[in-house]
């Protein structure tokens, strides 16, 4: 079943088009890596896919419904850009943030045993139960990412959308974080990931979409590294982040 269906989508900020003629599908269980140069519309496309924006033309369907329909929100876990870098003075604890994952189902009324169990299970799954009473703002970048993943797991999300989640995270935590994403994907979680590090994406993702306003490539990583889609999208002379893994 297709989790996300993007069809002929156009989106512009006033008269500046940032996404043009993009069509792609994300199947259940896919791990899609979205790559492209800075300002290529990756974040906008991700926001369109999970219904944070509505396309100027074309259509985006999420779980078979229009993406902006509020019901689809319950099934999406979103890890925003620079969560690892923003420290924040807000005195929320890890547990309070993970509990937010249950809010779409339980915006009012008491938490049930099921809600509490889902929160505990999510904390255990990403191995941060010992941090539960700590302040989110006082954690390391790598730990903070796990909090957001746990929030998505507590929500029982079927789709995890991440926007450059490892900016500002040390190499070791980064590896561990991508291992965790790989495990979740193996367990059936559909993942859409924006990542500037091409090496990470090609080694971890099952699908690659290469974007620079238009879609330059959509397919498996093996084919992607053989084509010249990358240099076409980035243009000649652009520096490409590429680490060996």
């Amino acid at each position: 079943m297709a989790v996300v269906e993007v069809e002929d989508v156009m989106f512009a900020y006033s008269d500046r088009p940032v996404v043009e003629d993009v069509s792609l599908e994300v199947e259940q269980g896919d791990f899609l890596g979205l790559v492209g140069p800075n300002g290529s519309g990756k974040t906008t496309l991700l926001e369109l896919m999970i219904g944070l924006r509505r396309p100027d033309s074309g259509s985006v369907r999420l779980f078979g419904q229009p993406a902006h329909a509020s019901e689809t929100g319950k099934r999406v876990g979103f890890v925003p850009q620079d969560v690892a870098e923003t420290e924040g003075e807000m005195p929320v604890t890890v547990r309070e943030v993970v509990r937010m994952g249950r809010y779409p189902r339980r915006l009012f009324g008491r938490f049930t045993d099921e809600d509490r169990a889902a929160v505990d299970a999510a904390l255990r799954r990403v191995e941060i139960e010992d941090l539960a009473e700590r302040r989110v703002g006082r954690l390391s970048g790598g730990q903070r990412q796990r909090v957001f993943i746990a929030r998505a797991l507590a929500a029982e999300a079927d789709l995890l959308a991440l926007d450059e989640p490892t900016v500002g995270v040390d190499a070791e935590s980064r590896e561990a974080f991508y291992d965790l994403l790989g495990e979740l994907n193996d367990e059936g979680m559909t993942i859409v990931l924006i990542e500037h590090d091409i090496g990470v994406v090609t080694s971890r993702a099952s699908e690659i979409a290469c974007l620079n306003r238009e879609l330059y490539f959509h397919g498996d990583p093996e084919t992607f590294v053989e084509t010249d889609a990358l240099s076409a999208a980035y243009g000649d002379g652009q520096s490409i982040v590429h680490h060996e893994h």
Binding site: I50, G73, P80, E96, M100, P104
Partner: peptide, 23 residues
């Protein structure tokens, strides 16, 4: 008291709250 949860969610992470379908 009645709207504590949505107010907290929106305060902590407005984009996340929107993605989760909160108005």
């Amino acid at each position: 008291a009645a709207f504590y949860r949505p107010l907290l969610y929106v305060t902590f992470d407005e984009v996340g709250a929107r993605a989760a379908g909160l108005s």
